[in-house]
Every structure is written in C-alpha cells, then in structure tokens.
Design a protein around this nucleic acid. Sequence first.
RNA 1: GCCGCUAUCGUCUAGGGGUUAGGACGCCUGGUUCUCAGCCAGGUAACCGGGGUUCGAAUCCCCGUAGCGGUACCA
Length: 495
Amino acid sequence: MSDRDQVRVRFAPSPTGYFHVGGARTALFNWIYARQRGGVFVLRIEDTDRERSTEESVSYFIDGLKWLGLDWDEGPFFQAKNRPKHEAAAAELLGAGHAYRCFCTPEELAAEKARAVAEKRSWKCPGGCRDRQSADAKRRSEAGEPSVVRFRVPEGERIEFVDMVYGPNVKEAADIEDFVILRSDGSPLYNLSVVVDDADMGITHVIRGQDHLSNTPKQILLYRALGKEVPCFGHLPLILAPNKSKLSKRKHGEIVSLPFYREKGILPEAFCNFLALLGWSPGAEDEVLGMKELIEKFDLSKVNKSNAVFDYRGGDERNWTDPKAIAINGRYISAMDLDDLVPLVRERLEEAGIWRDEFAGEKAAWFRSAIDLVRERFRTLCDFATLGRPYFSDDFEMEEKAVRKNLGKEGLAGLLEALAGRLGGVTPFDAEHVEEAVRAFAAERDVKPGLIINAARTALTGTNVGPSMFHVFELLGQEKTVQRLKAAEAYVAGA
RNA sequence: GCCGCUAUCGUCUAGGGGUUAGGACGCCUGGUUCUCAGCCAGGUAACCGGGGUUCGAAUCCCCGUAGCGGUACCA
C-alpha cells in the first residue's frame, strides 16, 4: 500500500486512565516492528477527550514505556495541539463536498435510529441533510443553527484493504453510515483526528488493537477524500479475561495495569517476552526470548487472529497473575547477568527495610554470592525480600510448618546445641569442611544425616526449602550458624 | 437488530487434506541416598456442533452456535 521506504509506526494511547497490559503489548509490537525494520517509533498522546484526560495518566504511559524499555524516537506529541489541523481537514472536506452539515437533533436521530432497527433496515439521516444544497446549509449554520459535520460516504463503493494480521478485508460503503467528523461545538472526532495525525506524521504502518478493525474502512475513506496516502494496517487480537470478557481495571483490579508488575518484582524484559507470546509464538523454539531475539524472530504476519485469554486466577497467592508470566520471570532471574540483578535486589531490600550498607561495601562479594545462591528458586524480585529474608537479615520468621516438620522430630533435643559446638570449631568454615563435620557428627550420634541437615535448614533459614545446606552454612558463616543453631533449640519438640 | 472478525489440551500456542495432533505454562506422579516452591524424568489433557467437497476433513466450503468488535456529537 505504501511505498514510503522509511517505516514509521506509532503508539497512540489516550491518557484517560491506567496503562493497560493490552496497550503495553500494542506498544511492544509497534516498537519491535520499528526496530526490525530500521524505522521510527512515534509516541502520540491522544488527549482529545478533555474531560477524561489527565496529566497523571500521561505519566503512567511515559513511565510504563520507559520501564518496559520501549524507547520512542519522536514525541510525545499531543493530539489536542493538532486540533487546528483537524478542523482544517474538516473544512477542506466540506468545501470539496466530501462532507456536509447535518442539522438533525440528537433526539430526531435517536428516534429515526430506533425506527430503523425496528423495521430492520439501515439507518439514514431523517432530515435529508445529505442532499441539502451547501449554500443553504451554510446560511443556516451562520444563522446560528447547530449542526454537526458528517462525512459523505461515497455510494456503491467497496473498500478493500489487506490487514497485516487479518488478511484481506472487504467492506461495502453501503454498510457505512455517514459518520460525524465534527461535533456541533466544532470539535473533531476520533476517526478524523487519527487520520489527520497519522497522515501528518507520515505513519506508514498502523499497528493497533483489533477493536479498531471495523473503523478502518471509514478511515481509509477519509484518507482518500483528503488525498493522503493510505498506510498499511495491522490489527492485534485482544487480551481477554478468563471469562472472555474485556479485561478492565474496574472488574479485574490492578492485575491489568502495568505498574503492578513492576511492584510485584517482574522484570521488564521478561514481561515483554510474556506479552509477545500472547498472540504470537516462535514455533517449536524456546519461548524465552530477550528483546534482541524478539526483534530477530517476531513476525507480525504470524500473529494470531483470535483473542488471547489472560490466565490469572484471583486468590491464588502463588500464581497471582498469569502463571506463564511468573515462570518466564523466574527463568530470567536465574539466567540474567548477576551484575544487573544485584542493584535490583538492593532496591527490594531497601524497600523491605533490611538493606545494609555493607552489602555494597566490604560484603559486596558476599552479597553477590548470596543472590547467586538463592536466585535459582526465586521467581520475582520480591522473593529476595521475603523468601530470601533469612539470608540478608537476622530478623526472620520461623515458619510453623517447617518447624513442625524439621524440628519436631524425635531425638533432636540437645542435638542442635551440640552441633553448634562442633561447627564452632570447624576451620576453614566452608561447604566442604562443614559437610565433613556434620556427617561425622551424625555418625557419632547414630542419626541419619538428613535429620541434622534438615533441622539445621529450619534453624538457619526458618523454612524447609532452599539450596543445598552446606552452601547455606558457608554463606551464612560460622558465627550466624552457631547462633541460629543454638537459638533453634527452643523450637525443638519437648524443649 | 444490522455489519464484521474469530473458534486446536484448563491457559498461551504449533501444525494443517493422510501426524501416535507437537511445544510451553499449570496440575499430578516418580527421582533428586539433605529439603523443595528448584532441577531432572514421566503423566494428564484439545481440533465448538451439523452438513458438504474428497478415496480421505481437525485442516477446504456452507450453515448453526458461541465469544469478541463495530454500529456514538467515546477513543
């Protein structure tokens, strides 16, 4: 459709609320498309709804895009500032006979529409405004009679276009009503504004939600009437709630809003990865794809035509959002560059109030290895401050279940105290030597090593899961090991 | 109501006129002579319904159904 060689795409949110995950995916797909085609990614804020647009909302989009790593090349442009151009376009259309003034009142229109529906026929303007002489219309308008401007949909035409996702589309002009492009107060409507702006900004590929698919023929008509080149269109399937209804914050809570994922310890790259998989798939290959791989492998023409369900279950603490998003995040945490992870963990510990400056000073190397030891089984950044708390702070909780399971066993009385004494003498205090000592100790006492090891796990970390215990001993060090073993004696059954 | 789009395991999806219909996530089971929420191995589970075309249909066509979108002086 377009032979302009520089690809120009845009993300055009309307700042009337939060940054929806579906919007995030639209932005991502636009960004990827621009990056893989060496094109330009434009950010345009569609703030023409003055009543509902807020500056706060604008910042949600700016912050969200930055967080995701979707850097834009031009903008942000504000659509409201282009209003003079929209009005000029309407005047041009009016002058060329592509549009006309309609003097019907909303009441007349509603009545006619109700009749049309009842009689199962198509809707038309009851006042015959379409056929009115323009001079006459001009006179009435200047006399102060309120009117809207409607686009004159050409008769007998058929609008065809090839959507990059949905393929060939055909729409009979007869099925399109003469839509309003200017309100009675003179303000432009969406269909006019987008077309004018997209043409003005030289957008070559319009990639947006599928909810705009049915409006596309109207927009194509506008491009033609305005003598502008029609861009390529690519519509994206929607992201739905588990009951297949629209995913909205009002009904589904913060699970649909982007900042929630940052708070919950999701990594932006992992989230983009997950989002890309909603409607698209790399085939038989690994689904874990970083931004670079996404740019390499993503193919807009292979995006699904059917809507995707965002699989979250309310009330499930472990799977608080789509479990796939969490699983992918876990893989990023395990595999990412440790240097990138360290500062992120620091933030979380600071928020939790358990950060200590020495972690960035004399214990920096220790801090790194602590993170490296525990990260494999963590799935979000939050886990470092919660599940990981015993590694970074002495103030941690003894889980009841773990205490019962590992410290509630027969024959443990006095053992931990004795073990503490024994480990207090181990030098050097590393995994290898501690293991030797622990196993020797178990043999002497004639108990299974597992009994001691698991009891120690709970004594040292308050839980019953974690990395290999000998690494934990080494990481926590001799002093804490001895301390915590002794302290745990109080939890041993019968103590 | 009218116009349009869509339909493969619970979810995301691959595939597509002849396949044991593949993968990922979830879930379940076993292993991991130290745990498991980690790791490894295995398992569970699907082509919306009905017609048609065809030697053969999950795949192509039609109808139905359902979901979604549009049908605004919202974007």
